[in-house]
Simulated assay, not measured.
Amino acid sequence: MRYLDFELSEGSDGVTTLDAMAATPAGRHAEVLAEAQAVLAWCRREFPHTQGPVDEGLDWDHDLHVGLEDGGWHTVSLTLTGSPRFVEAFLAAFGTPPG
């Protein structure tokens, strides 16, 4: 990962959240968006047919927001929620977040 640094938080309900956000000038926005799309492609490839509410027994879900801030900065924020097996595979593929 070059732009997205994920932070991990574990809920008492067994659902883990991985949050990442990047703000860049317009010239780097496409790179950040491509990185987010690559993460989502991995999720879909490794855990096909199990995307949806984790608290209903599925493995993973996501929320992707793209915005334009003052001064022309572009933001990309990606939140993933995951089951224990999803998070284990995610960390093996992308590394353990700092913290």
Rank of each mutant, 00 (worst) to 15 (best):
W42E: 05
G11C: 02
E46Q: 08
D5Y: 02
E46T: 11
D61W: 07
S77C: 07
T17P: 00
G95K: 12
G52E: 08
H49R: 15
E56C: 03
Q51V: 10
R2I: 09
A92G: 11
Q51C: 14
E10G: 08
F86A: 09
G82V: 05
V15I: 12
T75G: 08
G95V: 11
A93I: 03
G67T: 11
S9Q: 12
T75E: 14
V15K: 04
F47Y: 08
M1T: 11
T81Y: 11
A23G: 08
D19I: 02
L68I: 10
V76F: 06
V76D: 04
R45C: 08
H62D: 14
T17E: 12
F6R: 01
E10A: 13
S83K: 09
V54I: 10
H62Q: 12
D59S: 12
A23H: 00
E69Y: 10
R45Q: 15
R85E: 15
W60A: 01
A30T: 11
M21N: 00
V39W: 01
T24Y: 01
T17L: 11
E35W: 04
T50K: 09
T96E: 15
L58W: 04
A26T: 09
D70T: 13
L8Y: 03
E88T: 14
R2K: 15
G95E: 11
A34Q: 12
F86Y: 09
A23K: 10
F6L: 05
T96P: 00
F86D: 05
A93G: 06
C43P: 06
H49T: 12
A41E: 13
L91H: 07
L78M: 10
L64V: 05
W42P: 01
S83F: 09
G57W: 02
A89V: 06
V15P: 05
W60Y: 03
V66P: 01
M1Q: 10
L78E: 06
G14S: 06
E31L: 13
E56V: 00
A26S: 12
E10V: 08
D5V: 12
A34H: 08
